[in-house]
Design a binder for these strands. Structure first.
Lengths: 235, 235
DNA sequence: CGCGCCCTTGACCAGACTCAATATTAGTGG
DNA sequence: CCACTAATATTGAGTCTGGTCAAGGGCGCG
């Protein structure tokens, strides 16, 4: 599968600009002999809830989702991550969720103890944690207070690089974007707290209303990103 | 208002056990001349979304909620914090949510730059961030996948110290607990992604079913915590 | 005792879910 | 290149949970 930019799949802010000298510490960890690179095919489990959390994963390319399951099988996708994002940081010494690739992905596997041992690593990790926290807060608003239509609209706008997030640069000259949706309808539904049928119906409705144009199932053009954003219940 | 333990209000894990030598660094920051103590009455805004995020707040007693607003006034409470918790850590240099006391609270105000300057501070902050992240993931499952009844049940079980979270110790000899609910129905509704009427109806229903006994509006006894937990859609 | 603020309850409604059928799409092999 | 298959997505009909609107009830405080 071709190279997937994080923006194709994840609502991601630009990669954290590292802070000078500390960057070198982090770079040293990245290239440490204890650090390994791994390539996984799409829809491959990286780790499961309850497994020991003794290493971190950095996405070098591709996309990964984190999800939790209830006893009866209900699933909630809690995070969707892209290139440059770090995951595997758990509060305890066991993972609190499952991690699975959405598409073929390259991962850099880093020893947790090593990463947490220097201030550069700590800073880099803390920055990632803060980004994740901000995203999850936004997502809590989506899940708790937005209508199904608004959820899908928010999701689509977030797919557009540098849009739909804090620090959105606003419309460029031409406010059109084509996004690749590297998630199945089921995965989108489990991310947005909806059912697969509702997601499908809403995308069809958007198509009928001309809010999106479907090139293919997984490739949509948004003729007016700003307009879609206005339908997303923006704050 | 009397002293409120975090467990009276927040589903909080035990305070992070600090790690030896680094604790002293953190203790030094806590007692630094740049650190101030402040007492706020109940329902007082600590900061608003968009204000500069140049300091951290540690709750010495009381409880604080963080919430976000949509343009049309819909509100989602994204975190409920208690004694020992840190807040004000934003991804950018502006707060991404509002902070408001639930009850009269004592806050320790810490300079952000100072706290982030040493590895002890970084570690302490990173630990708090990880705890918050784990809680928000759990809350995303609640908001995205649980029924109204399960949401309220989950909320009540989390009010019981050391129950309803990862590392729940299971039923003690007598599995009865009395909890103080230091939130209005509106706040609970905005936390659980419901309406005030639904929260009210469900608590009434629980009362009828004997799942809870109401001493007062804000004081409930749960005769069988484990039983309530089983109704909460536990994973 | 009375006023105001929450909270509770009821009746009705609507948005999203469930179940079921059909249509596409991607992948495989002839 | 096309036919066939399995997986995924769409669409429809009907139901139900939770929301909306509106009216009463209870509690704390002055």
């Amino acid at each position: 599968m071709a190279y997937i930019d994080r923006h194709d799949v994840a609502h991601a802010p630009p990669p954290p600009p590292p802070t000078g000298a500390r960057l070198r510490e982090w770079e040293a960890i990245r290239t440490s002999p204890r650090t390994r690179l791994q390539r996984l095919p799409e829809h491959e489990i990286v780790f499961r809830e309850g497994e020991p959390a003794d290493r971190l994963y950095e996405i070098t390319d591709g996309a990964v989702m984190l999800y939790k399951l209830l006893a009866d099988g209900r699933r909630q996708v809690v995070e969707v991550l892209g290139r440059g994002d770090l995951f595997g940081l758990s509060a305890g010494d066991e993972h609190d969720c499952h991690a699975e690739t959405l598409v073929s992905s390259g991962l850099r596997i880093i020893d947790r103890r090593e990463a947490e041992g220097c201030i550069g690593g700590q800073q880099y990790i803390a920055r990632c944690l803060r980004d994740r926290l901000a995203e999850l807060r936004d997502h809590a608003v989506l899940l708790g207070r937005k209508s199904a239509f608004e959820r899908v609209a928010t999701f689509l706008v977030r797919m557009v690089p540098r849009r739909g997030r804090a620090g959105c640069t606003g419309p460029a000259q031409v406010d059109t974007a084509t996004v690749r949706i590297a998630m199945t309808r089921q995965e989108i539904a489990d991310y947005l707290g909806l059912t697969i049928e509702t997601v499908s119906r809403i995308i069809s409705d958007m198509r009928r209303r001309g809010v999106v144009v479907a090139e293919r199932q997984d490739r949509l053009t948004i003729p007016d990103v700003c307009g879609l954003c206005r339908l997303s219940g923006r704050h």
